[in-house]
């Protein structure tokens, strides 16, 4: 009986994990893709972890409950990473099937553009080719400080 219950939990968990990743593959834009991993995968892995807790509690002498920690942790963190990813995608103006409503925060988007320029600059600086073109000021100041 227990074996059937465990098999059911494991298969459900694996199927949901699979469907979550399938959503990652099939759906068309980032915002819809975000739905798959945050929901399906969370419950899928949750089922697998509970199956593991039940398995180790019954097949060994000691009660094993620490899998609950990972389950709780995933349930708390999955929405946070999804929220941050959605924020980053909105910030970068990725294309979306759904119409993105016009923001009232005009001044904020102004500073956002400046930040994007900053990122581009820092990427340029980290590129070794561009470093060769222009001398890096940091080295000079370091040299001056040394004596």
């Amino acid at each position: 009986m227990l074996e059937y219950f465990l098999s059911f939990l494991i298969l459900t968990g694996a199927i949901f994990t699979f469907i979550g990743s399938l959503g990652l593959l099939r759906l068309k834009d980032l915002f819809t893709r975000l739905h798959g991993p945050t929901k399906a995968t969370t419950l899928g892995v949750g089922c697998l972890l509970i199956a593991s807790a039940v398995y180790f509690s019954t097949y060994t002498e000691a009660i094993s409950l620490h899998e609950i920690l990972i389950t709780l942790f995933l349930f708390i963190t999955a929405p946070i990473s999804a929220h941050l990813l959605a924020k980053a995608a909105l910030h970068l103006d990725l294309q979306s099937i759904a119409k993105i409503p016009e923001n009232d925060e005009v001044e904020e988007s102004g500073t956002d553009a400046a930040i994007i320029d900053d990122i581009k600059d820092s990427v340029k600086e980290s590129n070794p080719a561009s470093i060769n073109d222009t001398p890096v000021p940091l080295d000079e100041t370091d040299l001056q400080k040394k004596p």
Binding site: I10, G13, A14, T17, G20, S21, L24, L30, R33, L34, G36, P37, T41, T42, G44, V45, L48, L49, A51, S52, Y55, Y59, E67, I70, L74, A78, S81, L85, A88, A89, L92, L94
Partner: peptide, 29 residues
């Protein structure tokens, strides 16, 4: 196509890895 897609894929990848590890743990006891 974009960086957020890749981050999302990495995120899913690590959750899948947890599932894989847990299953392997049950498999080996």
């Amino acid at each position: 196509p974009d960086t957020p897609d890749r981050i999302l894929a990495l995120d899913t990848l690590y959750v899948n890895t947890i599932a894989l590890l847990v299953l392997f743990g049950i498999y080996l006891g």
